[in-house]
Amino acid sequence: MKSFLQKRAVASAISLAGLIVLVFFLSRLTGDPTTLYLPVDASLESREQFRELHGLNDPLIVQFGSYLSDLARLDFGDSIRRSEPALDAVLRAFVWTLQLAVITMSLVTVMAIIVGSLAAFHVGGVFDRIATFFSLIGASAPDFWIAIVAIVLFSVNLGWVPTSGTGTVWHWVLPVAVLFIRPFGLILQVVRGSMITVLSSAYVKTARAKGVRNRAIIFVHGLRNAMLPVITVIGDQAAALLNGAVVVETVFGFPGVGKLMIDSILQRDFTVVLAAIFVTAVAIFIMNIIIDIIYAVLDPRIRY
């Protein structure tokens, strides 16, 4: 297990390094930041001054070198737009995104497992048909549309919840609800499919012959075996949320990392973009290792 974690950490570090290089050079290809930051009629001198101040005049390779040496000290530099370290801005936003992701995925996981398992127990039954119908709608509806419709319906027309921002528990309801729908539909389908296979397995037959109650057959014998493929999909969906739910965060004015990333890209605030990519990448690598550990915990046959 220890050597597995070491191997994974090394592999993750290599991927991360590649990512940092790629993003640094690609972001420089998007154009000259001075045209964006300074007024259109800014003088050549002030442009030159701006470039000099932010090191944009040095050759790309020098900029990259100094960037790397800063990075080694986890110093991403200051945000060009905001007068604060880029990492601070990113971490602040990331905490919001992390909360949103954890709350959403916890709800999704619990609900999808319960509903999917019960649907699988009576395949083709009324409950199964209703669950399948709604999960397919959920899995296929575009979230920007749901987000806007939800705002119109629940915030504007009914006035139940605020339209955007943060502050109270009520601010969380719509973002969580909208983010919930698609992963819920998808994971429910995976749980259901996996559970159908598991419930027809030989060891479930043994459990029935032992007189084990249906509830224990589903949630003790079935679930743990059915979870393996489900965990993979949960990880995938959680990674998407950790990256920042760009559309939903933007629509709801939610100060998460997705919104920060989009804003920074539009403003060519390279230091923030890089810091955001770095932070989310590290988070996703950590999450993948946790998922590998969960595999081994769920299935004693998996040993690293």
């Binding site: 397995s201 030989a202 060891y203 037959k205 043994t206 459990a207 029935r208 012959a209 032992k210 007189g211 084990v212 014998h221 743990r224 075996n225 769920l298 299935d299 004693p300 046959r301």
Partner: peptide, 19 residues
């Protein structure tokens, strides 16, 4: 089942829960 009448099967590996 299991108390008064019990059953064993052909392939014990697949009939035991692996986890």
């Amino acid at each position: 089942n299991g108390r008064r009448i019990a059953m064993i099967f052909q392939d014990p590996l697949s009939h035991l829960n692996p986890v």
